[in-house]
Design a protein around this nucleic acid. Structure first.
Lengths: 222, 222
DNA sequence: CTTTGTGAAATTTTTCACAGCG
DNA sequence: CGCTGTGAAAAATTTCACAAAG
């Protein structure tokens, strides 16, 4: 599974995640009318040491001016070139249960360049129900909607027990990327990209930090 | 900022995240009536190499039987001891906008050991509205609810422009941990734990993978 | 002077491979 | 045998510190 020489080297994932954060911060700075940013201030706003910010930015063609910083606008352009354009990409949601409905109502996706074009469910008893401006559609409609909208990504918000089945239907419908919220590792053809997400993971990590810091206090932490 | 010798060494964060995933998988296996698990199968189910699973498990006192595997139940106990008990912990949500309401309707938190005890908003025009079984309460009610329920964690689902203000109110109300969904780095006293979350990050990463794999195809990937 | 860009060092995390136990 | 537990090696990521540029 090696890449060929000609292929642009992949940006490491931790770096990618940070680039995404820089983008979010930069968009706010742009709204605030800021023309220039230094690696130091970008770091502050996104919680990253400035040296690492600079190292991250070497993965894209952007040039800062020494002694000055980076142009907000130019930096955003480079980021869009590397991570994907700013125009919005269509997205479908599979599963009209609690989570699916929750996500369909989340406006944050829009702001980050994604817009939901449909919400689907296999259960006939929920099909047809309106949620936040969308009618829940049957899974049988998926292929035509994918074709019509050009959607390439599905958000899987179904129970673990149905995740594999739903994934198969997504693949059959021509979708290329799956964001799977079900705690179940789906199997897909190698051409399909999958990412596993766990909404409660951060809650768990926070709780662990909390647990540690309080026991440190009990032990008379200095 | 060094820890004292006596303090239990912190479990590294990537390991913690995986432990949490193991827990989720183990709960399902337990429901399915499985008594024993090998590091190999735990690895399969959670997408981790078995050697790493075993290494991770050395952070907790659990003993597998060589040639056999781990007892599902005992392993879960160890995990709960390390990460936090299985009983549910109270949680408040700050912000009754799109995201706050979305999260309040997400039943997955319940299953992972958290239950929402209230949803709050500073805006008087949304206070009093019912959402998924909760009335939105004014921020002024926060201290009393925290006291009454013993909640220690808040989920911040407010706009970036109000994140700092909301965080301050949470701290004043006696909350100890903040899960911040706003793309803004809040400042808090050192005794307070904060975690930054970005719901669209995974979408972005998925999109990048997709972009890479399609350009690889164009280049005639073997 | 300030801030970038970057090799080299340090640290963290993962993989390997195998001894050892039931 | 099969599967755990674990040093030792490898790989990935971050930090450091400083030369160089505007």
């Amino acid at each position: 599974m090696k890449r060929r020489e000609e292929t642009t080297p992949a940006i490491p994932e931790p770096t990618l995640a940070r680039l995404h954060r820089y983008m979010t911060v930069l968009r706010r700075l742009r709204r605030e009318g800021r023309r220039l940013v230094s690696s130091e201030s970008l770091g502050q706003e996104s919680g990253t040491p400035s040296a690492l910010v600079r190292k991250d930015l070497t993965h894209l063609e952007c040039y800062g001016q020494r002694g000055v910083g980076y142009e907000t606008e130019a930096l955003l352009d480079s980021l869009h070139q590397a991570l994907g354009p700013e125009e919005t990409r269509p997205l479908v949601i599979i599963g009209a249960g609690n989570l699916g409905v929750a996500l369909s109502g989340y406006a944050g996706f829009d702001m980050q360049g994604y817009h939901i074009v449909g919400i689907f469910d296999a259960d006939p008893t929920v099909v047809g129900i309106f949620h936040r401006g969308f009618v829940v559609r049957p899974m049988t409609d998926l292929p035509s909607v994918v074709k019509a909208t050009g959607a390439r990504i599905a958000v899987l918000a179904v129970p673990a027990s149905h995740a594999q089945e739903a994934a198969d239907q997504c693949v059959a419908a021509g979708l290329r990327g799956l964001l799977n919220f079900a705690p179940f590792r789906i199997q897909v053809p190698s051409a399909i990209e999958v990412r596993q997400v766990d909404l409660s993971e951060d809650l768990q990590l926070l709780n662990y930090q909390l647990k540690r810091s309080s026991s440190a206090v009990e032990l008379g932490e200095k």
